[in-house]
């Protein structure tokens, strides 16, 4: 292995892993069991997993067609559109949360109408958490899927058309299965981002245990009074996400 690759690779690995080691070194191992047993911790963890998963589903539902639009059509202004899709990546999440409030809040552009017509108010609800997470995480999915679609050989789609497949059939029976690895990779990134989401969530959905307090919010507030608790919560979040992602990876490589 050439050292110009090896040395920076190891440095990069250390850079990513050492902070984790710092957390592990500082973790209050003696009090860990009873801290983990606290109902608030489990509640926040459950809420995090549920909302991140639903947010990922929402992103798949909306993001895959959006990626298709960007990759496969020749809309005018597609470049601008692509730049717009990445806005949530650049926007500080807190600003994203404020933006969501301005649109979907009780007095927001669309939110006001939702509230007047249906009595639906999204801020401070679990649905609001899902929305905030989906908003921030969607670009990861769209970019991954768009890349996969661009890389996919479109002649397979032509072959499907000559066999009598409609555009929709081509999409769901040929295109989608062929870019499935890209979609999965995007979904994983999306899920991980949603799981760690803090700024947009606390701004748009607020913080209430059991309803909108996800793990990152619990970690942040724990930092205010009890840094040890924050470390424990972070470790739980890390452990769960690593287990889930490693499990998923094994499953794909098993079937691929």
């Amino acid at each position: 292995m050439p050292w110009p690759l090896l040395v920076p690779a190891l440095a990069g690995l250390a850079f990513l892993v050492l902070p984790l080691a710092g957390l592990l070194a500082r973790a209050p191992w003696q009090s860990l069991p009873q801290r983990l047993a606290e109902p608030r911790v489990l509640e926040a963890l459950r809420l995090s997993l549920v909302t991140a998963t639903i947010a990922t589903a929402v992103c798949l539902l909306l993001g895959v067609p959006l990626a298709w639009l960007l990759a496969r059509t020749t809309l005018p202004g597609r470049r601008v559109l692509r730049a717009l899709v990445t806005v949530p990546l650049v926007l500080p999440p807190v600003v994203g949360g404020v933006a969501l409030l301005l649109v979907l809040g009780r007095r927001g552009l669309a939110g006001q109408w939702l509230y007047d017509a249906f009595g639906v108010s999204l801020p401070f609800t679990t649905a609001g958490v899902v929305l905030a997470e989906a908003f921030v995480a969607m670009p990861f999915l769209v970019i991954a899927v768009e890349g996969a679609l661009r890389a996919a050989d479109q002649r397979y789609e032509e072959a499907a058309a000559t066999l009598g497949a409609s555009r929709w059939t081509v999409f769901h029976r040929v295109t989608l299965p062929m870019v499935a690895p890209g979609v999965l990779a995007g979904a994983v990134l999306c899920w991980a981002r949603a799981l760690g989401e803090f700024g947009a969530t606390i701004t748009f959905a607020g913080n209430f245990p059991g309803r909108t307090q996800t793990m990152p919010l619990a970690v942040y507030l724990a930092l205010e009074t009890d840094p040890d608790a924050a470390i424990v919560l972070s470790l739980v979040l890390l452990a769960v996400s690593v287990i889930v992602l490693a499990g998923l990876r094994d499953r794909w490589t098993g079937t691929a």
């Binding site: 397979y156 072959a159 299965p177 062929m178």
Partner: peptide, 13 residues
């Protein structure tokens, strides 16, 4: 119209 493509383009999945 049936087409047999040059590199067949069988759906890999």
């Amino acid at each position: 119209i049936g087409v047999v493509f040059q590199d067949y383009l069988l759906f890999p999945h």
